[in-house]
Nucleic acid binder design. Structure first.
Lengths: 228, 228
DNA sequence: ACCTGAACACCGTTCAAGT
DNA sequence: ACCTGAACACCGTTCAAGT
């Protein structure tokens, strides 16, 4: 925050005087992503904010993917620090899941970024936390990977989708309730014989709360573990 | 298939003689996506295959997103036709889920395409099929949406991730086992105190089967429904 | 060691001109 | 009604030249 304020002061000058740093670039990228979405992150716009040329960034960052991973990791790392694992294993899983959900809600671009960097640090941070709770739940050893992986897939899957929805709504300049009613209206106009469910679920869909539904899914999987 | 063969004959001629059609463009786009991945689908490459100019495509297709949605829907529609809902509700859900999984395995680009078009026809086809099975399972009325949504998120989440993995591996020119061992080696080099789980799960991760693990997740959610 | 900024390659989309 | 293909706007990345 204060770093971003400092940068704005610097922006009023033609050219920066101090040296660039990788962290500085990443922070400015996060700011830019939050303000103008994934499409808004260009090396041109970023270098202008940093009061330098686009080539300068490449001294500190390998390429755009590297930049996105780093930005993503900064958000995930912060989220992990904020959601400590101090409760029962199930409570910890819920807390972690909600933490990721809220982080993607606040930074929609994180959703899609996480999906394009499997196995890299940000994802491993989440995987680690889930896996530790599964151990604590005494999940059978040979089921540890599939169970942990199911949670990870679900959490990232929902996150990705919500992020995409939010970015889509922003691009079109629509708010959430407008999008919901547009979609459900579309469903209602589908063929009655082929799409009875989609037509009938419209009202529930229009009124649904993403965060609560997300938690329902987490609890379904947690419930499934008990019946294994 | 035979349509694609026909097109190849036409490609050897300088300029096409018959009229273009939306279906033709979509089929050729699928072919191109399968052969060269998401990055390979450009209007330049596509119009060359169709023996026409890039502008011609815009008479039949609104923009690239429209094209991707249409290609995606063609694959999903075929998949739905192939996996009929003739068993018990739980069997039907498993069958549908595996059908989508296999379709994305065969066409990795479908994974990411599905995520960027929420609420549109291809996704609704899947939603409808799941919802009908949830009805048959006698899921409480007010839980229909969250439960159906949880399945959808999980199925699309895993699909998206597998698609991304496959495309990533192809870009780097690596096969699956190489990627798996590279990732698990990376995990093993993490800090022992901070990442005990990631370090210990490497062997299981290297030997895991995505399709089986995916089904485990489906069964976890199905199991959770019984405990609701 | 680090930065500059013009230049390159590429891509989605448009549009005046054709048939 | 449908197609042509040059042109435009934009973007990631490179690199010779600077300090």
């Amino acid at each position: 925050m204060s770093r971003s304020a400092m940068t704005k002061i610097k922006n009023s000058m033609k050219r920066r005087t101090d040296a660039l740093s990788r962290d500085q670039i990443v922070e400015e990228a996060i700011d830019l992503l939050d303000q103008s979405g994934e499409a808004g992150l260009t090396f041109q716009a970023l270098s202008k904010r940093l009061a330098t040329g686009p080539g300068a960034i490449y001294w500190h960052i390998a390429d755009k993917n590297d930049l996105l991973t780093a930005a993503c990791d900064a958000i995930v790392a912060r989220t992990m620090n904020e959601t400590l694992a101090g409760g029962t294993p199930k409570e910890n899983v819920r807390q972690l899941a909600l933490g990721i959900f809220d982080a993607i809600d606040a930074h929609p671009w994180v959703g899609s970024a996480l999906a394009s960097i499997p196995g890299e640090l940000p994802v491993v941070r989440i995987l680690e936390r889930i896996g530790q709770q599964m151990r604590a739940l005494r999940v059978r050893d040979d089921a540890l990977w599939p169970v942990t992986s199911a949670f990870l897939s679900y959490i990232l899957g929902v996150g990705r989708q919500n992020g995409a929805n939010a970015q889509l709504a922003r691009e079109k300049g629509l708010d959430r309730s407008t999008v919901l009613s547009e979609v459900s209206t579309g469903w209602y106009q589908l063929d009655a014989d082929e799409y009875p469910f989609a037509r009938s679920i419209g009202a529930q869909f229009r009124a649904h709360d993403d965060r609560i539904d997300f938690l329902t899914g987490i609890d379904l999987i947690l419930g499934g573990i008990d019946t294994m």
